[in-house]
Design a protein around this nucleic acid. Structure first.
Length: 540
DNA sequence: TGCTGCGCACATG
DNA sequence: CATGTGCGCAGCA
């Protein structure tokens, strides 16, 4: 409950959009989250809501549209002076957490390795000029003492495991590699194309730019607060041939064009939006809360995608073939329609023609995904349920997973067929196919292994404890269990320590293995790391 | 085609 | 008046 999985990514998304002078609305945030972090819009929205609740993000209605603000950076115009004092400490923490978010945004390897003290201070300084470096250092020390921040074995800092005061549940945990041996995540550390321009306050100089462009113009690095200057080539602002007529510039808001809301106010006084989207939006109330839902529910059909690899058969078919690829409603996973139709319940498209991959499929009762427990899918309506959510409770561990019908369907059809349909992630399935391929990538890969599942499955004494294994022991184990990858692990000098630190990305992306083998290996690694043979942990 | 940088109009205190 | 916001464009990958 207190844990907001993607809080920092969302904050980073907001910061990013703000830095680009784009409105940080739900749409853009979701888009950004999906692209950069592979977090599905559904998860983004859910976490965003939690962030709103805990007030690490504010929702504001600005110029008749909804925006989101990073609480750490946003000075709320409020007159609650009395509240001020009590929130200072929280704000201090927010400065730190915001700095962390910024850093993670800049370089995702911070997620794994933690953040060097100096880096954190530097980021905090550049974020908030209200505080001196000294003060910020003190804050960080304070957070260390309180446990909100922890020092990793490599000396870097990470947020602590739990929050200590109710206000901001900073329970985000880094998954980090301490051991340099394990850092083979090269490809995972996608750094952004150009660094974000944080803290770019309002430019001091106004309106100077139009003519005086060229490579030299603003390169006064020491121009106070303004950290980011455009780093690419100087922009052409206008073409001399434009000198004659109307507009002096080629970019930016056309002279005389007014803001939508202004137009609305001045001309209509009514409630039609005029913008090109052409969708007249009824004005006024920006659903005080609802905006989280105001997008994304488009797409009633699984959209056919222009290309990609089928997550089921792992084959890419050329576009135009009869067997079209459909995309998961909530993430980027794709699959051939035929693969879905011939697959087990969890794979089948819904009657309304939408499709959710196993990771995005949610229980129709509690709306939680497979993470919260094995989902059983109705063979008729394709609704999925957790065993306990469905009434009557679904018996556990059913062998066949194709024929279960939910209560709704049973009620509407008196003859009962019902043997439950368990999704392929069930443990039975896992045991039978311990090296089979997980066809689906979880939309968000950044973290895994939800603790609740860890708690549910007891440690299996038959699974060896690898912590002190040498590279040779690792090699031997894999020679026995998965000989194909043994040489690769050996070559990468994986010992027990390294293996227990390995993250999904390390295995799936870092070893250069094809997806299938990589996922199979990852499952074994998770099994060894947790000493629990629970396939669902690979999805966590 | 989608992302980015940013000038400048506009909103807000 | 000072400053925050984001539209809408140009440029780039």
């Amino acid at each position: 409950m207190s844990e907001i999985k993607h809080k920092y990514q969302i904050l980073a998304a907001i910061d990013h959009l703000r830095a680009r002078k784009s409105r940080p609305d739900i749409n853009r945030i979701c888009k950004f989250m999906l692209k950069r972090y592979k977090v599905s819009p559904k998860d983004t929205k859910a976490d965003l809501k939690r962030c709103l609740k805990e007030k690490s993000i504010f929702k504001v209605d600005y110029k008749d549209n909804v925006s989101y603000r990073n609480a750490a950076k946003w000075r709320k115009k409020t007159n609650l002076n009395s509240k001020m004092a009590s929130t200072i400490a929280t704000n201090e923490r927010r400065i730190i957490t915001s700095a962390i978010a910024t850093l993670i945004y800049q370089d995702q390897s911070y997620l794994e390795n933690g953040i060097a003290f100096e880096d954190l201070i530097k980021a905090a300084v550049s974020q908030d000029s209200k505080f001196t470096k000294k003060q910020l250092e003190t804050m960080v020390h304070k957070e260390l003492v309180s446990g909100s921040l922890v020092k990793l074995p490599n000396g870097n800092l990470a947020l602590g495991p739990a929050d200590h005061d109710g206000d901001s549940s900073d329970s985000f945990k880094f998954e980090y590699n301490v051991d340099s041996n394990t850092k083979m995540t090269s490809s995972a550390n996608s750094s952004c194309r150009s660094s974000p321009q944080r803290m770019r306050g309002r430019p001091k100089k106004r309106g100077g730019g139009s003519t005086g462009h060229g490579p030299t113009n603003n390169n006064t690095r020491n121009a106070a607060v303004r950290v980011g200057e455009r780093r690419k080539m100087a922009k052409k602002v206008f073409d001399p041939s434009d000198n004659n007529v109307p507009s002096k510039r080629k970019r930016g808001r056309p002279v005389g064009s007014l803001n939508k809301s202004t137009i609305k106010k001045r001309l209509l006084g009514g409630n039609q939006k005029l913008d090109k989207e052409g969708t007249p939006i009824s004005e006024g109330q920006m659903s005080p809360d609802g905006s989280g839902d105001e997008i994304e529910h488009e797409e009633p059909i699984p959209h056919e995608t222009s290309g990609g690899v089928c997550s089921v058969c792992l084959i890419q078919k050329p576009r135009g073939s009869n067997d079209r690829l459909v995309e998961c409603r909530d993430c980027n996973n794709k699959a051939h329609l035929s693969c879905l139709q011939s697959g087990s319940g969890i794979l089948k498209p819904r009657p309304d023609n939408t499709w959710q991959c196993p990771h995005c499929k949610t229980c129709v009762v509690c709306c939680e995904t497979n993470d919260a427990g094995i989902l059983t899918v109705c063979s008729i309506c394709s609704d999925s349920y957790h065993a306990l959510c469905h009434i009557p409770r679904i018996p556990e561990r059913l062998k066949a997973w194709d024929q279960w019908e939910c209560n709704n369907c049973l009620e509407s059809r008196p003859t009962v067929v019902g043997s439950p349909a368990i999704i392929p992630s069930s443990i039975d399935f896992e045991k039978q196919h311990s090296l089979s391929i997980d066809p689906f990538l979880k939309p968000h890969e950044l973290d895994r292994a939800p603790s609740k599942l860890k708690e549910e499955v007891p440690i299996d004494p038959n699974i060896p404890d690898i912590t002190n294994w040498t590279t040779d022991e690792v090699h031997n184990y894999f020679m026995e269990n998965y000989p194909e990858v043994a040489p690769i692990l050996k070559e990468q000098e994986f010992d027990g320590q390294a293996l227990s630190m390995a993250r999904r990305a390390d295995i799936v992306q870092g070893l250069g293995l094809p997806l299938g083998p990589a996922l199979s290996l990852y499952r074994i690694v998770v099994k060894l790391q947790t000493r629990k043979d629970d396939w669902t942990m690979c999805w966590g």
